[in-house]
Design a protein around this nucleic acid. Sequence first.
DNA 1: CTATTCTTTGTACGGTCGTGCTAGAAATGT
DNA 2: ACATTTCTAGCACGACCGTACAAAGAATAG
Lengths: 196, 196
Amino acid sequence: MAGRPVDHQRRAELLDAVVDYTVEHGFSELSWRPVAAALGVSTTTLVHHFGTKEQMLETILGRLRERMFAATSEAVGDQPDLATAARAVWTRTSDPRQWAEFRLFFAVYGRALQSPQQFADFLDHVVADWMGALRDAQGPDADPATAARTATLVIATIRGLLLDLLATGDRVRVQDAAESFLATLDDKAGRPSRPH
Amino acid sequence: MAGRPVDHQRRAELLDAVVDYTVEHGFSELSWRPVAAALGVSTTTLVHHFGTKEQMLETILGRLRERMFAATSEAVGDQPDLATAARAVWTRTSDPRQWAEFRLFFAVYGRALQSPQQFADFLDHVVADWMGALRDAQGPDADPATAARTATLVIATIRGLLLDLLATGDRVRVQDAAESFLATLDDKAGRPSRPH
DNA sequence: CTATTCTTTGTACGGTCGTGCTAGAAATGT
DNA sequence: ACATTTCTAGCACGACCGTACAAAGAATAG
């Protein structure tokens, strides 16, 4: 009646390996054959597990989002207020060990802006996920309008600074600007801003 | 001794047409044949004027940068101080008529982060151009360190907000956050912030 | 054992890609 | 007129692309 069971673990292994490959080798020129060669499998194996290429891209992006959001959302969740949460997010995102993932993130972001229907899932979550986390960090008593405004500004500034950092590599200047911004969040919360 | 003269104007016409095509159809899947078909010329004509594809991409990016930077740098140059200059830049960049160009801008940005050597020219100018303009807007008497910090923050915030705007289309929320940020620039300059 | 289903592989097909080659038309100087 | 150079076009080549197909090995249930 029943044959060989579906090996979900195998698919998960392959997916993580593919995501690793994508983070390292980029996203724009991704194709079956080089990926398969790098993983030591045949292209047919990848096709069997992920379907069409478009489906695989969607799967990769989903897994990537899962990784990146999980890595920082927990850092946000443990912080007492928005200012320290934002500082934690910035500390994490500006870590050079995360640069490869963020380079991929912005590559996908840029491509998604030009093919919105294909990357609808990405665009739906790329702001909303962080908005939720940063709104929660401001507590349930915060004014909703102010909370949304501040969360939007924090996301935009961090991403903008990260764009600068990845393009120029000028850590001193960007870090200086980041400290300046984070200080304004301290001030808003009525606490003294750190010296810099 | 001399044959038919080189037609520089013809090349300029083709280049602008190609840039228009790229702005509209995207950057990631650009290839000779569809572009040539859209312009009503043969692929050989494009190859003759632009050399290899990589050279054409570089030329396109240079022309695009010329367009985008010229469109806003003049708006910055005429402003009396940084706060109004930043406001002018934001007003211009958040105009929906410029969205297509900025979508292409971020698509190139993302790709450049993953192929730095190929897009070295883009990465060299993507921050430096605006840094120069926004530093000048703060006058010659401003403290260099503060000027650089503020310029960096203005660029990052505007680009981050634009990323949000292009992804979500939520003009109200993003504009609200932008006003909040621009108000802090007014405050720094010792002038009263606009109500919002 | 057999039957069934999943996994993996090799192969092949049609399509698009960048680009080189050849040749004719157009525009200049002599 | 001619020679020379640019412009434009058509064509062909090899490479890579996504993916469909057939077949063999592996793991389960009966």
